[in-house]
């Protein structure tokens, strides 16, 4: 799986660490790390929680344009 660089950039733009964002959405830092590295596909509920925490939409963070 590809790395989710948009999530990483959005988190950095909000000046949040992985641990802080993970705490906000109720998961462990390791889970957030796995999502950013593309090692884990989060559930829709978790995606929505991350989007709300970063004030972005699902399209902004998780939608991949077909090549």
């Amino acid at each position: 799986m590809n790395k989710n660089l948009r999530l990483k950039a959005a988190r950095a733009a909000k000046d949040l660490s992985q641990a802080k964002l993970a705490n906000t959405v109720g998961v462990t830092r390791q889970t957030m790390n796995a999502i950013e590295n593309g090692d884990y596909n989060p559930s829709l509920n978790l995606c929505i929680a991350i989007c709300k925490a970063l004030d972005l939409t699902l399209n902004d963070l998780f939608w991949e344009e077909s090549k």
């Binding site: 109720g26 998961v27 390791q30 796995a34 884990y40 509920n45």
Partner: peptide, 13 residues
């Protein structure tokens, strides 16, 4: 989101 005992990545592992 509800604060689960284990998060979803931990549960899948």
């Amino acid at each position: 989101m509800k604060k689960a005992r284990y998060d979803e990545f931990q549960i899948s592992n």
